[in-house]
Design a protein around this nucleic acid. Sequence first.
DNA 1: CTTGCCTGCCC
DNA 2: ATTCTGC
DNA 3: GCAGAATGGGCAGGCAAG
Length: 582
Amino acid sequence: MEFKLFAETAFELEKTSSRLGMVDILSKLFKKADKNTIQKLIYLLQGRVAPPFEGIEVGMGEKFVERSISIATGYTEKEVESLFRKKGDLGLVAEALLEKKKQLAFSEQDLTVGEVFDSLIKIAKTSGEGSQEKKVKYLAELLNRASPLEGRYLVRIPLANLQLGVGDPTMMDALSVAIKGDTSLRQEIETAYNLSSDLGLVAKNLYEGKKKLAEIKLFNPIRPALAERENDPKAILERHGTTMADLKLDGFRLQIHKKGDKVMLFSRRLENMTDSFPEVIETIKKNVKADEAIIDSEALAYNESTGELYPFQYTIQRKRKHGVEKMAEELPLHVFAFDIMYLNGESLIDLPYKKRRELLEKIIKKDGISVIENITTSDVKELESYFKKAIEIGAEGLVCKDPNSIYKAGTRGFYWIKFKRSYKGELADTLDLVIIGYFLGKGARAEFKFGGLLCAVYDEDSDTFKSITRVGSGFSEEMMVKLRKLLEKIKVKEKPARVDSIIEPDFWVKPMYVITVKADEITESPLHTAGRKGDTGYALRFPRMIGDIREDKKPEDATTVSEIIRMFKLQKHTSIESNPEA
DNA sequence: CTTGCCTGCCC
DNA sequence: ATTCTGC
DNA sequence: GCAGAATGGGCAGGCAAG
């Protein structure tokens, strides 16, 4: 298949906003593909070259792509970068610059989808000394052969940001329409995708006319069930009647596959993490009493003797390839299991949660692994008090599950509902921050010339403003327009004398405006200067802007550094230093 | 040998 | 992760 | 409500530059 067809279809998709229209356009492309091409098309549209658990990543981000564009078009990296800032999209940059150099280029043979795919594989597999230059060169070679429009989409593939409004669900509908003429195969395709996590393979099987598109298989991760959000316990019980409320712990999702002595571990995004957690492997071998099992869990650093839950910033250090054994001893993970999807040759995903949970409890022993604590209730008061207890012991909140629901792989739905502390307005950390700079936007935000803010707290001791977070979420388009207008008027060339920040925004502004920012947590930060001692300051986790500009506040009225330090100390957290065993 | 940029992936 | 927007 | 696309802090690892 010609890559030109891919690009032309992508262009049509980009112009279309209705879902049905997109499915129609995409299905026409899919109809022209054979069984090998369809697999490649699916991966390319996903911005990858293989399913996530294969571990084959293209490994090119914006900076590398900028260099490729520079080489292919003859413009300097500076020029490419500055155009990128203006357009907010490297696809459009590649297209514009290829257009300009068109007259000079002599035409070569047209690109095919297969060639593009193979080149990206080659880029993905390039490593070692000199690899960065090679990767950049290989992409530039493709760009050299691309038309401007092809360049637009070629460049967006390694960035995994095609900007077509097409995601997995749209592709699944389009596959069904391509093969059957309507969406009646969607359910079957979706089920197969949820079980195999490989839409490219499902599509290939579909094109080969296979009876069974995919089935649950040990050592092939299934797409994890996800939860919707809710902030009102009453609303949760209205949906579920009776709910099973599991503690929500702050670690990372771990999908465990076991057969005899063989164990594999997968992350939420289905990366293979088997080699990172040797102690977990041992625990599973010893303390899961089943020959075959697929278990869903949250893993985190945990003090087995005191029961203390360590903060995420400790747990995350375990996500590593080197020094694994040493870290496994220093900061062992505990597995909090909460679901089981497969047991001794049988899929359990269509059983109700309460039943799966019973089966799980039967096969989990102690030491290094436990079934996560929960209650079953239909009483609002009881749910609220359990939520309070969860917060007190250092959990993030609750995940409330419909006891009668199947394991709904792959999609968010109200079978599982997250109920976090921060969703409850009165419990959230709300700060008043001073805007000290702002950033240009990318993609849809390019037109606003606004992508986010750099914010600071007030340091009374030195009468300065110290950076504490960027904010890129929470504003409506209307607010972005307003913010840009206001900030444009007070932007300054240099960092103001009273501002202390390592991060450099696209534009500094005079510290004048105060906004309200909500966050889930205050964390120690290597990058922000608020409360900085040595190399560590404070930052906000999951910041978002709330409401409007605080006309009633002067910058000196903002939250202060000492308030931040006080809030940090009040947070429920334990430190490794206070643990004599560490 | 150290530092810093860039990327991918956790949340 | 959270949030907003078009359908 | 779904689907998609904006955006956050911060960790480790790979590689290049100093």
